[in-house]
């Protein structure tokens, strides 16, 4: 391979290598800027991922949905959950489809367990990355703000054409970063 060919071939490869993370960025930025915001109730915990630092793992509700009689659920294929807000303003699954609905808010989900007409679904957002010092503190904060009588944690997710990107994790009606800041500055 001549020097010019090597340089040109490497330029193409570099463009592709940069293009992959860039396309990930562009997709999510468009969703965050133009997508419709919905609130999902959560249950954070704190595992560790060697590649990406610490994050708050999210259990998104509603997990348990009723499967329409015309749909055969399977753990092997994705489904599309049409979403609507309930009386408290939190997302609920209004319908389950095997293909993307033409309009309205929806998100691609996977069924990880089903029995009869009940199915447990997994949303395409399951973690909120944080500083390794903040993640355990966020988990503790959740413990205090997510009891039977006091459920004050949720995530704001932007939805656009089936794409979903988490905008913020809310604890006690404040973005988690602000909540933790207030905790530190509190006497």
């Amino acid at each position: 391979m001549t020097r010019t060919t090597s340089v040109l071939a490497f330029l193409v490869l570099a463009a592709i290598q940069l293009g992959v993370p860039l396309s990930m960025i562009v997709d999510r930025e468009i969703t965050l800027r133009q997508g419709h915001a919905m609130r999902f109730q959560t249950a954070p915990v704190d595992p560790y991922d060697a590649f990406r630092g610490k994050y708050v793992a999210l259990r998104i509700e509603p997990e348990n949905i009723i499967v329409p009689p015309d749909i055969t659920v399977s753990v092997k294929r994705p489904f599309y959950a049409a979403l609507a807000a309930d009386s408290n303003g939190f997302a609920r699954v209004s319908a389950l489809h095997i293909s993307a609905p033409a309009d309205g808010d929806y998100v691609k989900v996977r069924v990880h367990w089903h029995s009869g007409t009940n199915a447990f679904i997994r949303y395409p957002f399951d973690r909120y990355y944080m500083n390794e010092q903040d993640a355990p503190r966020a988990e503790l904060a959740y413990g205090r703000n997510s009891t039977r009588t006091n459920r004050n944690t949720y995530v704001i997710v932007r939805l656009r054409h089936g794409n979903a990107v988490i905008e913020d994790l809310i604890i006690d009606n404040q973005p988690v970063a602000k909540f933790l800041q207030r905790e530190v500055s509190a006497p």
């Binding site: 993370p21 990930m24 960025i25 590649f51 990406r52 957002f125 399951d126 973690r127 990355y129 988490i166």
Partner: peptide
């Protein structure tokens, strides 16, 4: 650096972990 770039974009946008 390729791994770092993909991982950091995933971290910034809270992309679900599928190793």
């Amino acid at each position: 650096m390729l791994a770092a770039a993909i991982a950091l974009v995933g971290q910034t946008y809270h992309i679900p972990g599928n190793l």
